[in-house]
Design a protein around this nucleic acid. Structure first.
Lengths: 107, 107
DNA sequence: GAAATGAGTAGGAAATTTCCTACCTATTAG
DNA sequence: CTAATAGGTAGGAAATTTCCTACTCATTTC
């Protein structure tokens, strides 16, 4: 119960695939479950983890429950990643950092 | 046991903290272990996971083993994250995408 | 009303993770 | 050579994850 860490939620490939599907469009559980080689209850549990991490929201529509991607919290990942960018970015990095206006003095 | 998935490696807060320490500067195991409320063998095991994920490299220096951050593979995370950026980015997004496109052309 | 559909929960087995203490090897210091 | 230091490995306990089947409840259809 309670909220799950976003990194933990993303550690599972099924959950990443669920988010990728929902990025395309909001979908009910059965439609999502059809795409995986596991039972619907198992998919349901993965969706619960995503819900607990705040990465999806639901909308009740008759007897269907439509899942929507809610990726604001993915920003936590992006923010954690940001200081590492300089390790793989090229020479346009400096301009980008000025745009972001949030990089420490380096190099 | 071969290579670990990068998302899995990052799922643990101790391992993320280890990377953050190594981002500051390369360090031997004991210096890293001193920063955590767990035994050195446990830290050693976390370092092994990071090694298996290709996120750190080691350099033998006398009886010390210096760990270096090797964050190229973090790009897998950044790449997975990229399609979600539009959900939280503002109007600078278009310029940034333009920069990315230019970068791709130059390389 | 009864049957079917959509989806969550319960309980549990198997696998994996995380941490420990104890031990081992390699290198350096005295 | 002996002792100390640096750090990995072995084995195991406890917790967590991942998947299952069986069941429940709510809504819709007939």
């Amino acid at each position: 119960m309670g909220d799950t860490d976003v990194f933990t939620a993303l550690a599972n490939p099924t959950r990443r695939a669920l988010l990728d599907l929902l990025r395309d469009r909001a979908q009910p559980v059965n439609e999502l479950a059809d795409r995986f080689a596991m039972t619907r209850p198992s998919v349901s549990e993965h969706l619960k983890v995503l819900r607990d991490a705040g990465l999806v929201t639901t909308e009740q529509l008759g007897r269907q429950r439509i899942y929507h991607v809610a990726p604001q919290r993915l920003r936590e990942i992006a923010d954690w990643l940001h200081p590492y960018e300089r390790f793989w970015r090229g020479r346009l990095t400096d301009l980008r950092h000025h745009l972001d206006a949030q990089e420490d003095i380096e190099q």
